[in-house]
Simulated scan of single mutants.
Amino acid sequence: MSAIDDMALSDEALEAWMAVKTNPRPLVRTMSALDGFVTAAVTGPRFADPQDWMCPLMGLRRDVLAKGSATDHAVFASLARIHNRIKETLFDRPQDYAPRFATRPSGGIDPRPWCQGFYAAMNLNIKKWKRLLDLDNPNHGLLLPILIYCVDKKGRPVLGKPRPGPETAHFIEHEAYKDIALVIPALRELHYVTHYDPE
């Protein structure tokens, strides 16, 4: 085990911490949303500094590594562990990548928290995502299986109201999210040069 693994919290402890943290609050509150956010940070346009997303995501001060508490350091290590796991999977075994979707109380998959976490990361770096949000961009379709589950700050569907009817409802509830595991490696490929090369 690495030093990061030794310091990191369990998933249950991290989720409990996110649920009660305030002032400032984390941008996400669940492990599924956290997984979506970190996936966007790994696969999307590059942040100038990892702390530009890591600190706001968890509601931590920018000087957390120098002045944070032991718990702050454990949270930061937990986030680094999740980042490394997602990055290593997408680079070494993209065919094994699987989003960490939530499970509904009644059973079945709920992709919404994961997608909303991904969308929160996009909004934190929105200027660099704008190109891909352009409907005329041929790669815009890569975002559709994610954005179909997202709402904006006012609770409105990001892609607009879905077409009414049972076919659309069935597609959203049971089909659309299955494409996310396919588009994430494609997004990583698309942003690879700009993400990992100096600007």
Rank of each mutant, 00 (worst) to 15 (best):
M1V: 11
A3C: 06
I4C: 06
D5H: 13
D5L: 08
M7E: 10
M7Y: 07
L9N: 02
L9E: 03
S10M: 00
D11L: 04
E12S: 07
A13V: 01
A13I: 02
L14G: 00
E15K: 00
W17Y: 05
M18C: 01
V20T: 14
N23D: 15
R25C: 03
L27Q: 06
L27P: 00
R29F: 08
M31L: 14
S32L: 02
L34S: 02
F37P: 01
F37E: 02
V38K: 04
A40K: 03
R46A: 15
F47D: 07
D49F: 15
P56C: 08
G59Y: 00
L60M: 01
R61W: 09
R61S: 14
R62M: 12
V64I: 06
V64L: 03
L65T: 07
A66Q: 15
K67M: 07
G68M: 00
A74W: 00
A74Y: 03
F76N: 00
A77V: 03
L79R: 00
A80P: 01
I82K: 00
N84Q: 14
R85E: 12
I86D: 01
I86G: 03
F91N: 10
R93F: 11
Q95W: 11
A98V: 04
P99Y: 04
P99S: 06
P99E: 07
F101D: 03
A102M: 05
P105G: 08
G108Q: 09
G108T: 06
D110Q: 10
P111Y: 12
R112E: 13
W114F: 14
G117E: 01
A121Q: 03
A121F: 01
M122C: 09
M122F: 04
N123W: 05
R131P: 06
L133Y: 06
L133C: 07
L135R: 12
L135V: 14
N137E: 14
P138S: 11
N139A: 15
G141F: 10
L142M: 11
L144N: 14
P145F: 06
V151K: 12
V151D: 14
K153N: 15
G155D: 11
R156M: 15
R156H: 15
V158M: 03
L159G: 07
L159I: 05
P162D: 09
P162N: 10
P164T: 08
P164C: 06
A169N: 14
I172N: 09
E173A: 15
H174F: 14
E175C: 12
K178L: 15
D179G: 09
D179N: 11
L182K: 13
V183P: 02
P185W: 08
A186W: 04
L190N: 04
L190A: 07
Y192G: 04
T194G: 13
Y196Q: 10
D197C: 09
D197F: 13
P198A: 13
E199K: 10
